[in-house]
């Protein structure tokens, strides 16, 4: 009796969740366009998830831009987990609020595309930032760095520490994360081309789990006793690989680099278990995102080179792929880590 009851209850719960998910879908077809006339433009940004330092730093930059520009109201809300459905609900609510510009860092670019179409139909200017939805109606993509910039930055920083040769492995996160995979492709090609004596021996996927990333890095060091380098491809595996090297007592023998946020990487940069964190100035990315939102809300076109602020005096725009590029990737080391408060 009991297990059958449990199964029935579980089914009912699932069905209820599925139903509530569906009923919300078709509520927002009627909104009309209202972007003209108002002096203050509402620019909304929906991150992949909120509460993590990365997107909170973007939020800080966005707020700063709104204050500097004067005619922008910056709105920021994201799901508490990197979940495409929860993110879609927030996007729909912004469509209903009839914001002037809606910028999304999509968790799932494919499922976000029809929602962006809905927003456009409602007269809202749409854009993407941080992660693109290439096959959507977005007017601009605010790109933090090119895949080449990041992949080459990671490879150069690691191989410099490894002396230009040796075996290294990559601990990545989501196996289907498109941006991570595009960086890995660059790392593979660039290593082969520029460092013929270096070799990537394995690429493993730990999800967003720090402890798992650390354990996998430990296993990789055991699997390849001659390993001298590790790359943590995302913000949870970057400190993970460094921790593994530290725990194994291999600081100075195995070098690590990673895509980590400065404050999280600070202890590892200081004890040398991590050589460098490759990132970009996230606050500036937020600033540029808010600025771009204000531009499209006002219907202003982008120039080939844009003077956004004193720190962002020459932001390049490419018309072919409608992309604003923040600039080259940034290497964070124990020397400059204190400049960043996120």
């Amino acid at each position: 009796m009991r297990p059958r009851f449990a199964a029935a209850v579980a089914l009912t719960a699932t069905a209820a969740i599925a139903l509530t998910g569906c009923t919300k879908k078709n509520e927002t077809d009627t909104a009309g366009g209202t972007d003209a006339g108002s002096k203050t433009y509402k620019v909304a940004f929906v991150p992949k998830l909120q509460g993590v330092p990365y997107f909170e730093a973007m939020n800080a930059g966005g707020k700063e831009a709104a204050a500097a520009l004067g005619n922008v109201e910056w709105l920021y809300q994201g799901p508490t987990q990197a979940d495409a459905a929860a993110q879609a609900d927030i996007v729909r609510s912004y469509i209903q609020q009839k914001v002037d510009a809606l910028i999304v860092a999509p968790n799932d670019p494919d499922s976000m595309a029809p929602l962006l179409q809905q927003a456009k139909d409602a007269g809202i200017h749409v854009a993407t930032a941080d992660t693109d939805a290439p096959s959507s109606v977005r007017e601009v993509f605010v790109n933090q760095a090119t895949a080449e910039g990041i992949g080459q930055g990671l490879t150069d920083a690691l191989l410099k520490a490894m002396g230009g040769k040796g075996k290294y492995a990559i601990v990545s996160c989501g196996q289907t994360a498109e941006n991570l995979n595009s960086w890995i492709e660059v790392q593979k090609a660039y290593t082969k081309e520029k460092y013929p004596e270096a070799q990537i021996v394995d690429i493993v996927y730990a999800g967003e789990d720090q402890a798992k990333a650390t354990q996998m890095a430990t296993d990789l060091m055991n699997a390849h006793p001659d390993l001298t380098g590790l790359v943590g491809e995302c913000t949870s595996s970057a400190p993970g690989v460094a921790q593994a090297v530290k725990d194994a007592g291999k600081i100075g023998k195995v070098f690590t680099v990673g895509l980590g946020t400065p404050q999280a990487m600070k202890p590892y940069l200081q004890d040398k278990s991590s050589t460098a964190a490759i990132l970009w100035d996230v606050e500036n990315l937020g600033y540029l995102t808010a600025w771009a939102g204000a531009q499209i809300a006002q219907g202003k076109p982008f120039a080939a080179t844009n003077n956004v602020s004193s720190e962002l005096s020459a932001v390049e725009y490419t018309e072919a792929d409608k992309m604003l590029l923040l600039g080259p990737a940034l290497a964070i080391t124990d020397q400059n880590v204190d400049q960043f408060n996120y």
Binding site: T214, S236, Q243
Partner: peptide, 17 residues
């Protein structure tokens, strides 16, 4: 144990799954 075997940073994914 989880804190001890993680890194010096704890993020929201802890315990998930």
């Amino acid at each position: 144990f989880v804190i001890a075997q993680g890194t010096s940073t704890l993020d929201q994914s802890v315990g998930s799954g």
